[in-house]
């Protein structure tokens, strides 16, 4: 007896579920063209987000690699104990330029550059 009641209730639930689902599907099928067009435009706007950050800025994918390379180069430079030989003049130049006693030299930088060039050529001439 109670089994029969349960069956009837279950049948009623199933009918309600089916009728609700059918009414809902009919309302979805009945959506007007303008609404469907607006949904389509919204979808395209959402899909456009997919390209941002990769398609339109492809160089960004190299930023992490460049950062790692820069850190590695700095680490090698720092931990080697002394700078490479060819960087020594550059460091010396900075020391000179930052020395307040030699500020006058800044005003005649072009002259001292000429002297250095002239001496270099003379030395090459002696060797040759």
């Amino acid at each position: 007896m109670s089994g029969s009641k349960d069956d009837m209730r279950n049948d009623g639930v199933r009918r309600l579920e089916k009728k609700a689902a059918d009414a809902f599907e009919a309302s979805v099928r009945g959506l007007d063209a303008e609404t469907r067009s607006r949904l389509n435009r919204g979808r395209q706007r959402a899909l456009a987000e997919l390209g941002i950050g990769t398609r339109f800025r492809p160089w960004l994918q190299w930023v992490p690699a460049a950062g790692v390379a820069a850190v590695v180069a700095l680490a090698i430079f720092t931990w080697s104990g002394r700078p490479p030989a060819d960087t020594a003049p550059a460091v010396a130049d900075f020391e000179i330029l930052l020395n307040t006693d030699d500020l006058e030299m800044l005003e005649e930088l072009e002259f001292y550059s000429w002297i250095e060039l002239d001496e270099g050529e003379g030395a090459n001439g002696n060797v040759g």
Partner: peptide
């Protein structure tokens, strides 16, 4: 992936709207 997403949205959007 873009095509899959497009198909997914096209399939789901009207029901989601309702």
């Amino acid at each position: 992936r873009e095509q899959e997403l497009n198909r997914f949205f096209a399939d789901v959007e009207a029901r989601a709207l309702r």
